[in-house]
Write a protein that binds this DNA or RNA. Structure first.
Length: 262
DNA sequence: AAGCCTGCCAACCGCGGAGCG
DNA sequence: ACGCTCCGCGGTTGGCAGGCT
């Protein structure tokens, strides 16, 4: 899991840290502090560059550094803060005692970001189902409902999507929601398609309303058009694929315990 | 059983900003 | 104002471990 030790052109060791090196660095910093990272390794008796020492200390040796899986609360905080701050890992880490920016960044890239990529898809066909909601001011009631299932060639989330995957996918929607900085937010599926099928969680419960739909064949100008009647292509070619959905801010109130919104 | 693939995470690298002379 | 040094941040890489075929 770690890089094998090696020596660079300056005679500095690189790669995985040994227990002996850890102990030298730990005991030196506990005794003298880190007054100058560049000079520290020399005084601590380490053949490492200052940068490497700093990284090892901050991410691994520093007292209080937490290891292991992120708790549900921590995941929620990361997701929420990322929606607000973007890739400001150090700023996010400040709000999560014991977690380092590196760890949060790894968490994001491996558990969240990855899942948005079409190549991550495992099943050939999936559906995205939602129910039209005409009055966005009444978040909890639906005046009309229309169940639409849109098949896609790619599917980010299989029907066996885990609770965690679902949470993460929804959190991504929330990020877009926040990013729009409007009462109602938009999430464009055009470039990064997020699809899922999760029977327990229909869009009716998200109080989501669809907005518009790309359909090149029906729009010569290739422009986005609001569709009061949903233009539905049962099997759209990839270049025509794309769905613009608007979400109610209610999306923020997703209950991670029940998988439902309230 | 063996080879391949994917997930995960420690560590590296490059860049930009702050501080200082 | 400028150049240099140092530090911290964010992006990326390398490779082990475990699952899959």
């Amino acid at each position: 899991m770690v890089r094998p030790p090696s020596i660079d052109s300056n005679g500095m060791k690189k790669g995985a840290w040994s227990e002996d090196e850890d102990e030298k660095l730990r005991s030196y910093i506990q005794r003298y502090g880190h007054w100058n990272w560049r000079l520290l390794p020399k005084y601590a008796g380490l053949k490492r560059c200052g940068k490497s020492c700093r990284l090892r200390w901050v991410n691994y040796l520093k007292p209080g550094v937490k290891r292991g899986n992120f708790s549900k609360e921590e995941r929620q905080i990361v997701i929420k803060l990322h929606a607000e701050l973007g890739n400001k890992w150090s700023a996010i880490a400040e709000k999560l005692p014991g977690r380092t920016d590196n760890e949060i960044k790894n968490f994001w890239h491996t558990r969240v970001e990855r899942r948005r990529k079409p190549n991550h898809l495992t099943k050939p066909i999936n559906t995205i189902s939602f129910i039209e909601k005409t009055d966005s001011s009444e978040a909890t009631s639906l005046s009309t409902s229309q169940d639409l299932s849109v098949p896609f060639d790619d599917a980010s989330f299989s029907t066996n999507s885990s609770q965690e995957e679902l949470e993460l996918m929804l959190s991504e929607m929330l990020k877009e929601d926040v990013a729009q900085n409007e009462g109602l937010a938009a999430h464009v599926f055009n470039e990064e398609v997020l699809e899922f099928d999760y029977p327990e969680l229909r869009y009716s419960e998200l109080s989501c309303s669809y907005g518009s739909f790309w359909n090149e064949s029906s729009n010569a100008s290739n422009s986005e058009s609001e569709t009061s009647s949903y233009s539905y292509n049962a099997n759209p070619p990839v270049e025509e694929e794309g769905l613009l959905l608007t979400y109610d801010p209610l999306l923020q109130y997703f209950d991670y315990e029940t998988s439902l919104f309230w």
